[in-house]
C-alpha cells in the first residue's frame, strides 16, 4: 500500500487534471461562461487601469510640451496674408525662449486636417475656398516659459488665438486625479462584481458535478485537494478569459493609438502592453481560481458534502 520514500504519487494530480478537462468539456456552457465572465471583468478593470495610465501620460506630455501654434486673425484687404504671417513669425523668433518659428500656410492646415480624418473626407471639395488663416508653428527652447510666452503673444493685435498643450494641463490633471481615485474603487468594484458572477457561474458547473464531488469526499479526498482541483480548473479557465481580454484590449489600444497619432500634433508615448497583458492574465487567473474554489466551498457547505 505504501510508496517508497522519495517517489511522490502524481496520479491524483493526473486524475484531477483529467477530471477538470472532462468536467469542462461536459459542461461547455458553464466553462465558456466562466471564460467570458473573467474576460469581461478583467477588461473592465484593465480599461480603468488604461484610462488612468493614459491620462497620466497625457498630463506628462502636455507638461513637457515645448510647442505652440499661433493662429492669426483675418487680414484686412490691404495686407498680404503670407507677408503678415511672416512678419509675425519674425517677431516671435526674436522673443527669448523661442527656438524657431515657421509659417504654416492654410493649405498645410487643410491637408493635416484631411489626414486626421483618415483621408475619408475631401475637405478641398467641401471648402472650395480654404477657410483657415495662416498660422505660425512655434518651437520653444523649453516648456517652462510656455504659459508666459503664450500670454504675451496672445495680446498682439494680429493674433486670434495661441494653442498650446499646457493650456489643457489643468483639465487633464483633474481627469487623471479623478481616474486615480475612482480607478481604485472601480477596480475593487469590478473585482467583487466579477467574483460574484464567477461564483454563480461556477456553482452551476460544480452543481452538475456534485456526484463526483460527493464520491471523492466519501472516499477520503481531503477538502483542500478538492478545492485545489476546482481552483486549478477555475485558474485555467480564468487564464483563458484573461488572455481573451488581453488580446481584445491590445487590439483596441493599438487602434486607438493609431487614431490618436494622426489627430495629435505631438508624438505619443507607446502604450505599456507588457503590464497590461500581465495584469489581464494574472487577474483572470486569480478571479477564476477564487471564484471556483469559493463556489465549491459554498456548495459543499450547502449540500453537506463533507458531513
Amino acid at each position: 500500500m505504501r510508496r517508497p520514500l522519495g517517489r511522490p504519487n502524481l496520479w491524483p494530480l493526473y486524475y484531477a487534471l483529467r477530471d477538470a478537462r472532462l468536467g469542462a468539456g461536459r459542461n461547455l456552457v458553464a466553462a465558456v461562461s466562466a471564460v467570458l465572465v473573467a474576460a469581461f471583468a478583467v477588461s473592465l478593470a484593465a480599461l480603468v487601469f488604461l484610462g488612468s495610465d493614459a491620462t497620466r501620460s497625457a498630463a506628462r506630455l502636455l507638461r513637457e510640451q515645448a510647442a505652440m501654434r499661433v493662429v492669426l486673425t483675418e487680414p484686412s484687404e490691404a495686407t498680404s496674408p503670407a507677408g503678415r504671417a511672416e512678419a509675425v513669425a519674425r517677431r516671435i523668433r526674436a522673443l527669448p525662449g523661442v527656438a524657431s518659428a515657421r509659417v504654416v500656410p492654410p493649405e498645410e492646415t487643410l491637408a493635416a486636417l484631411e489626414e486626421a480624418f483618415g483621408g475619408t473626407v475631401d475637405l478641398g471639395r467641401l471648402f472650395p475656398e480654404n477657410p483657415f488663416p495662416p498660422s505660425v508653428a512655434v518651437f520653444l527652447t523649453g516648456p517652462d516659459e510656455a504659459g508666459a510666452l503664450a500670454a504675451r503673444i496672445a495680446r498682439w493685435p494680429e493674433v486670434d488665438e495661441v494653442v498650446y498643450g499646457q493650456k489643457y494641463l489643468p483639465a487633464v490633471l483633474g481627469l487623471a486625479d479623478f481616474l486615480r481615485r475612482a480607478g481604485l474603487a472601480s477596480v475593487v468594484g469590478f473585482a467583487l462584481l466579477g467574483l460574484a458572477v464567477t461564483v454563480v457561474t461556477w456553482q452551476l458547473a460544480v452543481l452538475s458535478r456534485l456526484a463526483e464531488v460527493r464520491v471523492k469526499a466519501w472516499m477520503g479526498v481531503s477538502p483542500w485537494a478538492l478545492a485545489g482541483q476546482f481552483a486549478a480548473e477555475g485558474a485555467l479557465l480564468g487564464l483563458a478569459g484573461g488572455a481573451l481580454a488581453a488580446m481584445g484590449l491590445v487590439l483596441v489600444v493599438h487602434r486607438v493609438e493609431l487614431a490618436l497619432a494622426t489627430l495629435l500634433p505631438w508624438p505619443l508615448a507607446p502604450p505599456r502592453f507588457g503590464p497590461l497583458v500581465v495584469l489581464c492574465l494574472a487577474s483572470g487567473t486569480a478571479l477564476g481560481a477564487a471564484g471556483a474554489s469559493l463556489a465549491l466551498a459554498l456548495l459543499a457547505r450547502r449540500e453537506g458534502v463533507f458531513r
Binding site: N9, W11, P12, Y15, V215, K216, M219, G220, V221
Partner: peptide, 8 residues
C-alpha cells in the same frame, strides 16, 4: 473511479 480517487 473509486480506486483512482485513492491515487491508484
Amino acid at each position: 473511479y473509486g480506486a483512482e480517487v485513492l491515487g491508484r
